[in-house]
């Protein structure tokens, strides 16, 4: 028997969303976690991608480089753009046909829209926004289940959720919660074309216009360096100073929710529970007190430097290093010192 670990490969305009590769990495780890059971039963674990769209071969091949054993492809001109009902029907059909044990979907706007519909249509359980996933026995000796852990109550509590009697065990995961797996030079396996067409009865809505946002090229979730500001900046102008430092460090500017609510900066920059989850190499938190809702969005950063006037600010609890002081003194000093460091390199 094959035990299938599925990942929904999300694409928009023929480009894969990076969260799909992150999830292939997770699926591979989950498959490895049941090796002991496989040895006993002689079953095989397969990591498989599912891809719906039109002319997606390149994306499918890329999925194989990120460790998928198989990629199921549904290609139909009517599936060029995502729409809830046709995509839900196609995935429901595939799930019923192949009976995966686990199915992971990115917790993007598209993924959340789709996963909730597919879970209902298939009749199974779905855990949203998981931050930790493992295959484990709820009781010793019992078969392993997907242990899906997620924050609740604004990040104040974490809960581990099981889906005992229904399959697949579904979970959504926000981008950047898990690291990118390394890309394999060789793609070892198969692209399987599924012969499904989208019939008119599957279509109950159409996209009449696509409005591309201006100035939304800030990719705070995939930045390696983030210089983030909070209420402690005092005003919108403070972000100009942070932008200078971010530019010197080759990074982008992030913000706490308070600043976005105060219209100091646009929502694209918001980090935290209601904004983006980030995991940069370097996160500089300037004037951010560190409410739990902010921390859950950035605590996986490799190095967190917190700058705050209040020595009791909760942000210091998770900071790799803290500076208690005035950010309007600290940030300019940082700009000067990084410039000096770079200049010294050029001289030598």
């Amino acid at each position: 028997m094959n035990r299938r670990f599925w990942v929904y490969i999300e694409q928009e305009d023929g480009k894969a969303h990076q969260v799909s590769w992150e999830l292939l990495g997770v699926a591979r780890r989950l498959a490895d976690e049941i090796k002991d059971e496989l040895e006993k039963t002689g079953d095989t674990a397969l990591v498989e991608g599912v891809l719906v769209g039109h002319q997606m071969d390149e994306v499918a091949r890329e999925a194989l480089h990120f460790g998928a054993d198989n990629v199921y492809v549904v290609d139909d001109p009517a599936a060029k753009h995502y729409l809830n009902k046709p995509y839900t029907e196609v995935l429901t059909h595939l799930v019923k046909k192949h009976q995966p044990e686990v199915m992971l979907v990115g917790a993007t706007t598209l993924g959340r829209d789709l996963a909730g519909a597919v879970a209902t249509s298939v009749g199974t359980g779905l855990t949203a926004d998981t931050t930790h996933l493992a295959m484990g026995s709820p009781k010793e000796g019992q078969p392993k289940l997907l242990m899906a852990t997620r924050p609740a109550f604004g990040g104040n509590v974490i809960a581990t959720i099981l889906c005992r009697n229904h399959r697949p065990q579904m979970a959504t995961v926000r981008p950047r919660v898990f690291p990118m797996p390394s890309r394999l030079a060789e793609a070892k396996s198969n692209i399987i074309h599924e012969d499904i067409t989208i019939t008119p009865d599957m279509v109950n809505a159409e996209i009449v216009e696509i409005i591309t946002k201006k100035g939304s090229d800030v990719k705070v979730d995939y930045a390696d360096v983030i210089v983030a500001g909070g209420r402690g900046l005092g005003n919108a102008k403070g972000f100009e100073l942070l932008q200078q430092l971010a530019t010197e460090l080759g990074g982008v500017v992030g913000a706490s929710r308070a600043c976005v609510d105060a219209h100091w900066i646009s929502y694209d920059h918001q980090v935290g529970q209601t904004g983006k989850t980030v995991r940069p190499k370097l996160y500089i938190a300037a004037g951010i007190s560190g409410a739990i809702q902010h921390k859950v969005g950035m605590q996986e950063s490799d190095f967190i430097l917190a700058i705050n006037r209040d020595p009791n600010a909760p942000i210091f609890e998770i900071a790799s290093m803290g500076i208690v002081g005035d950010l309007y003194e600290v940030i300019p000093s940082m700009i000067n010192q990084i410039r000096a460091l770079k200049e010294a390199q050029h001289v030598h």
Binding site: I158, T160, C163, F316, E317, S320, M321, D326
Partner: peptide, 23 residues
């Protein structure tokens, strides 16, 4: 309900690093 809560807890605490005071 297909899903059940298996256990709940509080988020893991990260270890705080060194804190310097500019003062």
């Amino acid at each position: 309900s297909p899903t059940t809560v298996f256990r709940t807890g509080t988020p893991e605490k990260h270890k705080a690093g060194e804190v310097l005071k500019t003062a």
